[in-house]
Simulated scan of single mutants.
Amino acid sequence: MYTRYLSRLFSAMAGPRPVVLSGPSGAGKSTLLKKLLKEYEGVFGFSVSHTTRSPRPGEENGKDYHYVTREYMQASIDKGDFIESAVFSGNMYGTSRASVQAVKDKNLICVLDIDMQGVRAVKTTDLNPIYIFIQPPSMSILEKRLRDRETESEESLQKRLHAAQVDMVISKDPGIFDVVIVNDSLDDAYGKLKDTLIEEIKKVQKTNLSS
């Protein structure tokens, strides 16, 4: 019943086609996304996720994440306020309907930065996004990137690496992602990302010019 409700909800939501951006932590999704939002100001909107984890140094509530309590988030999920949610390393993460709607209401391309479990959840709706997977060049490079952050315990890091390995295998399954981009060179990866989205970008730019 809930899935059917979401399907009706998103069928009725007018606006630009959203983008689902997925990939392992450390693959470079955030860097690519920041470049995209900077170059195409007034075209993209970032769907800010909710999480129960504590903010890292430099992160801002409402910008990087909505930082909430486990009780609040579980109650919101139970009410059906979330499109997708997942638990990783003991912390809850999720995308609320309101965060997507807020972006679409501005006639912006809504970007959802979500994990593989979230991707599967979105696929049960009629949101109809463009699915993009950002992949590191290798597991050894990914491990180095994560270690260089110095934000993970060894146990947490190993969990992330294991999850990344699983996600990279799943990403090869046909029908899950429209495009898989290997982030070996940031410029090349960004070029492929823009090429994938340029049609939707032009539609939004044309609409904004005529409005």
Rank of each mutant, 00 (worst) to 15 (best):
M1F: 09
Y2K: 09
R4C: 11
L6C: 08
F10G: 02
A14H: 13
G15R: 08
P16N: 12
P16V: 14
V19D: 01
G23H: 07
S30N: 08
L32S: 00
L37N: 05
K38T: 14
V43T: 04
F46S: 04
F46V: 02
S49T: 10
T52H: 04
P55V: 10
P57I: 07
G58F: 06
G62E: 03
K63F: 07
Y65P: 03
H66M: 11
M73D: 07
M73C: 14
A75K: 14
I77V: 15
I83F: 10
E84C: 15
S85M: 02
F88Y: 15
V100Q: 04
Q101W: 11
N107L: 09
C110D: 05
I114P: 06
D115S: 12
A121K: 13
K123W: 00
T124P: 03
T125G: 07
T125I: 08
D126Y: 05
D126T: 12
I130R: 10
F133E: 15
I134V: 15
I134D: 09
S140K: 15
S140D: 13
I141L: 11
E143V: 06
D148I: 05
R149F: 04
S153H: 06
E155Q: 13
E155T: 12
S156R: 13
Q158C: 03
K159W: 01
R160V: 11
A163T: 12
Q165S: 14
D167H: 12
V169C: 08
S171T: 02
K172I: 11
I176A: 03
F177C: 08
I181E: 05
N183I: 07
D188C: 13
L193H: 06
L193P: 00
K194Q: 13
L197C: 12
E199F: 07
V204K: 01
N208E: 10
S210D: 11
